[in-house]
């Protein structure tokens, strides 16, 4: 509740022209959005582009945010829409090679050793997610990584709850075999 109030206060100030409030709001959620974009696109550069598109849309639609729900949910609805558009447009791009994305370089961290560990861990997870179609990956992402309820996911994606549950079941079926490898890791 405190967070909600604080979000609304930042939004109010950002709408009033406060640059610092907008930056605070962006910084609060950019990690979440960026990692979401990264898991959906498998590519740092695409994730960055997509995140910027999401925040641009958030910024443009900020006056329309009525504060009748969590800002995070509202923002993730925009993110879901933008992701769908982005993946659709990328799918039309003949230069895009889906197989190349997992070889994308990870960002450098404090030590080369931890870099490798994080890289290896995340890479395994990405490989599992890569076995799923975009709509299955979306529901897995929003349910298991973002921890939204089915009702919230339904609001964000505009897909019925029953359809989401069916998609999730189908996604879990598709993970057959891949999760065993993951459990060993």
């Amino acid at each position: 509740m405190f967070q909600l109030r604080k979000d609304e206060k930042l939004i109010e100030k950002a709408l009033g022209g406060s640059q610092s409030s907008w930056v605070s709001l962006v910084k609060r959620y950019e990690g979440l959005v960026y990692n979401y974009c990264y898991r959906m696109t498998f590519n740092n550069s695409d994730a960055m582009d997509l995140m910027q598109e999401v925040y641009l849309a958030v910024y443009r639609n900020l006056p329309a945010y009525r504060g009748d729900g969590k800002f995070k949910s509202w923002m993730m609805r925009i993110a879901a829409n933008k992701t769908t558009d982005f993946l659709r447009s990328r799918g039309r791009n003949p230069l895009h090679q889906a197989g190349d994305v997992l070889d994308d370089e990870f960002h450098t961290h404090d030590s080369p050793h931890s870099d490798y560990e994080e890289y290896a861990e995340n890479k395994q997870i990405m490989k599992v997610l890569a076995t799923l179609s975009e709509e299955h990956r979306m529901v897995v992402e929003l349910k298991f990584f973002q921890h939204f309820t089915f009702e919230e996911i339904s609001q964000q994606t505009g897909v019925a709850v029953s359809t989401l549950k069916t998609r999730l079941y189908a996604a879990l079926q598709k993970l057959k075999g891949h999760m065993e490898v993951q459990n060993v890791v």
């Binding site: 930056v23 950019e30 960002h107 961290h109 861990e121 298991f144 459990n183």
Partner: peptide, 22 residues
């Protein structure tokens, strides 16, 4: 698979966001 996925998701190490013009 759902249980394994829950555990897998918890192991995700957040990627730091590259510097960008906010």
């Amino acid at each position: 698979n759902a249980v394994a996925l829950t555990q897998t998701a918890a192991r995700w190490q957040d990627q730091p966001v590259p510097e960008w013009h906010r």
